[in-house]
Design a protein around this nucleic acid. Sequence first.
DNA 1: GCCAACGTTGGC
DNA 2: GCCAACGTTGGC
Length: 154
Amino acid sequence: MNYWLMKSEPSVFSIDDLANKPNQIYCWDGVRNYQARNMMRDDMKNGDLAFFYHSNCAEPAIVGIMQVVKESYPDFSAFDENDKYFDPKSNPNNPRWFMVDLKFIRKFSRPITLKELKIVPQLADLALVRRGNRLSIMPVAATQWDFILNLETD
DNA sequence: GCCAACGTTGGC
DNA sequence: GCCAACGTTGGC
């Protein structure tokens, strides 16, 4: 089992959008970064858990948990020229971009803020708090995962 | 293959 | 809105 962190701008898609339709399956389309793509395509497995992170907003924070329910397949939003994620260099015969499907697991009782994550020494190696990190998908070590979960009830 | 210009991300 | 830190593009 692997653990992940996935960013979303809450003004576009938030944890409440997830929580309001708890049984819906979501395809994580629109990833257009090779490192993030490679992790989704090669390493994300059914049953893996992912933190849902609010980025580019007033209070950047981890706000809940999702689970991978379908492993990688071509991101068809890249094929549709009317889609905002259209990429003419990707096509069904040779797809460049991939996505996974996810479902809602739970919303945290409180946001675990970036500010809070930055000050704990145990998370110094978490990619999220490393300088200049802009990856929209990143791995989380099991020890980091457990530590962050414990922060929720501190 | 180098690298300047440009575009994007995302915290603040 | 600012800007640092990237990633991408394209001329050479």
